[in-house]
């Protein structure tokens, strides 16, 4: 039986009395699963990610990632998590290679070793020859590729992705999405990604969690492996219903 990689049990995050980031958030994600989180702006998707990353403490409830509380056991998660943010978040004073190697450097790998691994990832993402360029010398798509390489290079168990392709032009976004899904599947990672795009969620995920304010799962939808146009439209309507839009 496949283990739970991520468990949220009745999780609440209250920023100030009555102001909830998430409320009674309950869901499980299995190892190797690819899950999309969709929902309107301000419905607590990013707060859920911060809780998952251990960057913020839940007011109540339990968050378990790989069996541990990511906030309490903060340092235990060295090398276990990878994150691709909405914007690339590259350090401007580091080259593409040095940026891709950040996690490896934190993990204590020697320069030669970390550069070798980071370079392999840059090559896989089509950035061979661009490794010595600084972020301002790269296009938006290239920068996002570097940030994907940065996330994968530490070989994490779980990869999170927060609307990472929304700022890119449609063609680049489609290409990167495909590459991203391929890398997750090929390397047998657990993937969780936030998106505004229902099409993107259906295209990439095994399961879609529909979020509603104040930060709880209103609906869970399993995406079949084979989808035709009719089924696609059905899923889209189902998700929109969960968001109270349809």
């Amino acid at each position: 039986m496949t283990k739970d990689a991520i468990v949220f049990k009745n999780v609440c995050k209250e920023f100030s009395p009555g102001d909830f980031g998430v409320r009674d958030l309950d869901f499980q994600i299995k190892e190797g699963e690819m899950v999309a989180i969709v929902g309107k702006t301000g419905c607590g998707k990013s707060t859920a990610f911060n809780l998952l990353l251990g960057l913020t403490k839940p007011t109540s409830g339990q968050v378990k990632v790989d069996g541990l509380d990511p906030y309490q056991s903060f340092q235990e998660f060295k090398g276990k998590l990878g994150m691709v943010f909405q914007n690339d978040r590259l350090l401007p004073w580091r080259t593409a290679l040095e940026n891709a190697a950040i996690g490896l450097e934190v993990n204590g790998l020697k320069e030669k070793e970390r550069n070798k691994i980071a370079m392999e990832w840059l090559e896989r993402l089509g950035l061979s020859g661009w490794e010595d360029k600084f972020p301002h010398e790269l296009s938006g798509g290239m920068k996002q590729r570097v940030s994907i390489a940065r996330a994968f290079s530490v070989d994490p168990k779980i990869i999170l992705c927060d609307e990472s392709f929304s700022a890119l032009d449609e063609l680049t976004a489609i290409k990167l999405r495909k590459e991203f899904v391929h890398l997750i599947r090929e390397n047998n990672k657990t993937g969780v990604f936030i998106t505004h795009s229902i099409g993107e969620a259906i295209e990439m995920a095994d399961r879609v969690l529909v979020y509603k304010k104040p930060g709880h799962v209103a609906k869970e939808i399993t995406v079949p492996s084979e989808i035709d146009v009719k089924k696609m439209e059905e899923l889209r309507k189902n998700i929109l219903n969960g968001m109270d839009i349809a």
Binding site: F74, K78, M83, N87, R89, V106
Partner: peptide, 10 residues
């Protein structure tokens, strides 16, 4: 943003 990015790597 950059602080958070770094913290992910602990």
């Amino acid at each position: 943003d950059l602080r958070e990015m770094m913290l992910v790597f602990r």
